[in-house]
């Protein structure tokens, strides 16, 4: 079943075209990545979906309710004045769920996100990886049908990023959240996705759609030859876009 589809979605800021007739869809339980050069307009797609930006032309349709997206911004955007537990329940509080019930909903998930001992800490007291896990949990507990992740591991150091990706793959294999990931990291896209859309330079068009039929888990062991092949192809496609192909 299709969870989300964008049909001929275009956006211009003033005179500058940013998105040019974007078509993409996400199936239920599928992990889809949007890969593109920096500044291509990847985040603009998320801003359309979360309603920060009004839709100009084209249609967006999603299965189920009106507001079916949970959004995880690039930096963790944890509120520094709220303790971790209160950051986690923020989305539920906004939905009007009383604090006590919200905490009860978050409670069972704390363990697998490695946050059980840190609920009363302030964000500043946690490491980058833990903050990112908290931000992800804050996204998941909202109970929306589609998770929008905007370069969730981009701000982490290389080692922590690898750890987080491996951990995330485990979590995802267990839960199968319908996920749309924005990234410019080719390896990350190949490691996590069922399908990858490649965007061109601004104005962004979909220039490639690639299936990644590699068995999971893919992380925590040497990448397969097939993964290398896909990575090489994606990299070449992207480099052509930045005009730096050899």
């Amino acid at each position: 079943m299709t969870a989300l589809s964008l049909n001929d979605v275009s956006v211009t800021f003033g005179d500058i075209p940013v998105l040019d007739r974007i078509n993409l869809h996400v199936e239920q339980g599928e992990f889809v990545s949007i890969l593109g050069p920096s500044g291509a307009g990847k985040s603009t797609i998320f801003r359309l979906l979360t309603g920060t930006l009004p839709l100009q032309t084209g249609t967006i349709s999603c299965a189920g309710r009106e507001n079916s997206f949970a959004f995880m911004p690039q930096r963790d955007a944890l509120m520094p004045w709220r303790r971790i537990i209160d950051n986690l329940t923020l989305g539920l509080e906004v939905q009007g769920i009383p604090r006590k019930d919200a905490r009860a909903q978050v409670g069972p998930l704390l363990g697998e996100f490695g946050l059980a001992d840190f609920t009363t800490h302030y964000p500043a007291q946690l490491s980058g990886g833990m903050r990112q896990r908290a931000a992800l949990l804050r996204t998941i507990v909202q109970g929306r049908s589609i998770q929008l992740l905007d370069e969730p591991f981009g701000a982490l150091d290389a080692l922590t990023r690898t750890q987080m990706q491996t951990w995330f793959e485990d979590r995802w294999r267990a839960a199968r959240w319908t996920t749309l990931l924005v990234t410019h990291d080719v390896r990350e896209a190949v490691a996590l996705s069922d399908r990858i859309y490649v965007l061109s330079r601004r104005p962004a068009r979909v220039i490639a759609e690639i299936n990644v039929p590699i068995p999971r888990p893919r992380l925590g062991r040497p990448p397969s030859a097939q993964a290398y092949e896909i990575e090489a192809y994606l990299l070449e496609t992207l480099l052509q876009q930045t005009g730096e192909t050899s």
């Binding site: 979360t50 920060t52 959004f71 930096r75 955007a77 509080e93 906004v94 929008l148």
Partner: peptide
């Protein structure tokens, strides 16, 4: 932080909710 405001908006927060949860504490 504009990212916190975007986050609130993505959660479907009203203007009042965003003020109470984000803008007011930011101003302290």
């Amino acid at each position: 932080d504009p990212e916190i405001e975007d986050l609130m908006r993505s959660m479907g927060a009203t203007r009042g909710q965003t003020f109470r949860a984000a803008r007011f504490p930011s101003a302290m």
